[in-house]
Amino acid sequence: MDRILRDADPNADPQLTARSDPDVAVGYSPILDVARGSPAGYQAVALDGPATSRDNTVAIIRAALSAFWQLPTNTFISIPIPLHRLGDPLVRDALRQHGDLAGIVLDITDFTPTISPATEVALDDVRAAGALLSVGGRETAQPELGSIIRLRPSIVRLGHAWIADLDQSATKRTAIEVTGRLTAQLDAWILAEAVSTGAELRALSELGVPLAQGPFIGQAQSVWADIDEATIRVLPHAPSASDGQLRALLRQAYTTTDQAAAEHVLPEASGYESVVVIDDTRRPVSLLTRGTFGRWEPTAVLTIHVDTPVAEAVSRAMSRPPETRFLPLVCTDAAGRFLGILKIEDVVTHLTGA
């Protein structure tokens, strides 16, 4: 989740009123980090109706981006944007004016299989600026497999049809487990929407769903709402805290901002087993490992927060496809900056020894 969070601000006040665009009423619905029982982020919500018009979409984007700088420490903000409006010049300008989009999730709604050239360019641009994507179905529909594969999101949203009476449906639990395995292979997170009862939240926790929001989690407000104690007490166990062990297992890796140049250096000459490609803010973007023919081969990065419990780190590593399952994990701080790598054999050995 550290890929999503904005940089920590020690002066942030969680009770500050979020600044809003004067032309639109926007509230912020809390998103629960289910494992830790604390806010993971906030979703911008139009309080006076759906944001379907072009002007409303732009106004909500501007309001949310203005409020971004007052976010509580280690949280992210998500902004709904219809896919067909992402390539709109006004929408693109509103996002471009913000500059760095790290810590911002764009909730892509109204997905269609046909994506216009302008939208394709806009998707590339927001990714390059650091934004992450979230996809899901309309209201009660399930997320389309095509949208998940095409957009490579960081968050997959499950709507009301998935979550309603989940505690009473073995079929729904199985479906969420299968979806969870798919998203894990994509290094994405599931966000359960429309959670309306304690029983549903408890079932989601037992299934290992990391993020949840809905009436039972908290209503949209003009302040950064905390998670109610009554909600936290529903969780079947105390929120998992860091065991503090990953820091002791960190290994250094060669880092570079120029992947093309690094790929031309033989692994033997570098003296390292891995190369981590980072951006200008030291956030990992790719991992190079020794390939079959003795040269570097790029692969997707699986990032792990340094305070993640060891057992959770192993679980996430083992959820990857067989061909990448035993590659190193890339460890980051709360702002997503690179700290070091974790070799799977070190992590597993520590876990079995413990």
Rank of each mutant, 00 (worst) to 15 (best):
A175W: 13
Q142A: 15
G136N: 09
I149Y: 12
T197D: 07
A170Q: 13
Q213F: 07
W189C: 08
S196R: 10
A164N: 12
S134N: 02
L182M: 05
T171C: 08
G130W: 01
R127E: 14
E206T: 00
A141S: 13
V126R: 11
A212L: 04
S134E: 05
S147V: 03
R152Q: 09
G198I: 10
Q219Y: 09
V156S: 11
A122Q: 11
A164L: 11
A203I: 01
W224F: 15
V121H: 08
A230R: 15
S205M: 00
A220R: 04
A164P: 03
V195W: 05
A225F: 10
E193K: 06
A122L: 06
A128P: 05
L211H: 01
R181V: 03
D125G: 02
A212K: 04
R138M: 14
A128Q: 14
L166D: 02
S169I: 03
I148P: 04
E200T: 14
G159F: 08
T171A: 12
A192K: 01
P117I: 14
R181Y: 00
L186P: 04
R233V: 01
V209I: 04
A129F: 11
T179R: 07
L151K: 08
L145W: 08
D228W: 03
I176N: 01
E200F: 12
R173K: 13
G136E: 09
A212D: 03
E139P: 01
R202K: 14
I217Q: 07
A225R: 11
L166H: 01
R150N: 12
I217E: 03
A164E: 05
L151G: 12
P215K: 02
I227H: 14
A141T: 11
L132A: 08
R173G: 02
I163T: 13
S134H: 05
P210W: 00
E193H: 08
V156I: 08
A141V: 04
A184E: 00
I149R: 13
E229G: 12
R127Y: 07
D125K: 13
R138Y: 13
S196Q: 13
L158C: 07
I232M: 02
G136K: 07
G218N: 06
W224E: 04
A122K: 02
G146F: 07
P117K: 06
W189E: 09
D228Y: 05
D165L: 05
L204K: 13
T174Q: 12
P143Q: 08
L186C: 13
L186Q: 09
W162A: 07
A131F: 08
A128H: 06
V126M: 10
T183V: 15
R173Q: 12
I190F: 02
H160N: 04
W224T: 07
A203Y: 02
E144S: 03
A128F: 11
E229D: 12
E144I: 03
L186E: 12
T174L: 12
L123Y: 06
Q142N: 15
L191R: 12
I163P: 05
A199V: 01
T197N: 08
D187W: 05
A184R: 02
T119V: 15
E120I: 03
A212T: 00
G136P: 00
E177H: 01
R150V: 10
H160F: 15
L204P: 11
R152E: 09
A212M: 05
A128K: 01
V195C: 08
V121M: 12
E177Q: 04
R152S: 05
